[in-house]
């Protein structure tokens, strides 16, 4: 089980603060793909992803028990 934390408008789009993903091991790229397939409104390309409080690359592997954060950049200032 992997916990995915959501922030900003993602939270409203998903209607929840976090998702539980049933995977033992998955790359960041595959997680992006899986989320896009399941949630059509999602454009993950421009969403930043951190695993266990560290920004991750697409080839990094997420393990069961890890906490992933989906970080939408916002432009307001």
């Amino acid at each position: 089980m992997i916990t995915v934390l959501l922030f900003a408008h993602l939270r409203e789009q998903f209607g929840t603060r976090d998702l539980q993903i049933e995977e033992n091991s998955i790359t960041v790229a595959d997680l992006r793909k899986q989320l896009e397939e399941k949630y059509e409104f999602l454009d993950t390309k421009s969403i930043m992803i951190a695993v266990n409080e560290e920004f991750a690359d697409d080839e990094d592997v997420i393990q069961a028990g890890d906490t992933v954060a989906l970080i939408p950049p916002v432009s307001g200032g």
Binding site: H9, D43, S46, I47, M48, P72, P73, V74, G76, G77
Partner: peptide, 16 residues
């Protein structure tokens, strides 16, 4: 490096 793809849509103070 952190954000190689700019979002096509993003929240601003004027929208959100």
């Amino acid at each position: 490096c952190l954000l190689p793809h700019l979002p096509s849509y993003s929240l601003t103070c004027d929208t959100a």
